[in-house]
Simulated assay, not measured.
Amino acid sequence: MKVILTQEVSGLGTPGDVVEVKDGYGRNYLLPQGFGIRWSKGAEKEVVNIKRARGAREIRDLGQANEVKAQLEGLKVSLQVRAGDGGRLFGSVTPVEIVDAVKAAGGPSLDRRRLELPSAIKSIGSYPVKVKLHPEVTANFDVTVNRSK
Rank of each mutant, 00 (worst) to 15 (best):
Y127S: 09
L12M: 13
I50V: 12
A56V: 08
S92F: 01
N28M: 07
R114I: 06
L133M: 09
R38A: 12
E97P: 02
R27N: 04
A139S: 11
I50N: 12
G125K: 02
E73P: 07
V9N: 09
H134S: 11
G125V: 00
S92A: 13
G36K: 06
V96M: 13
A101M: 05
T94M: 08
F35P: 07
I4E: 08
G55T: 04
V3K: 04
E116W: 11
S40M: 05
L12H: 10
G125M: 02
L72E: 01
G91M: 04
A43V: 07
A53H: 11
R114N: 14
R57F: 02
R114W: 06
V129Y: 02
N28L: 06
P32H: 11
S126N: 11
K122Y: 00
K41H: 11
V21G: 09
G55H: 05
S148W: 00
G125F: 00
G16K: 09
I59S: 06
G86H: 03
S148G: 08
V48A: 14
K130R: 15
S148N: 06
V99D: 01
R57E: 05
P95H: 10
E116D: 15
G63L: 12
G26R: 07
A70R: 15
N140S: 14
V19Y: 07
K41G: 15
P32T: 07
K22N: 09
E58W: 02
V9S: 08
I50Q: 10
N49A: 15
F35L: 15
W39D: 10
A43W: 01
L31I: 14
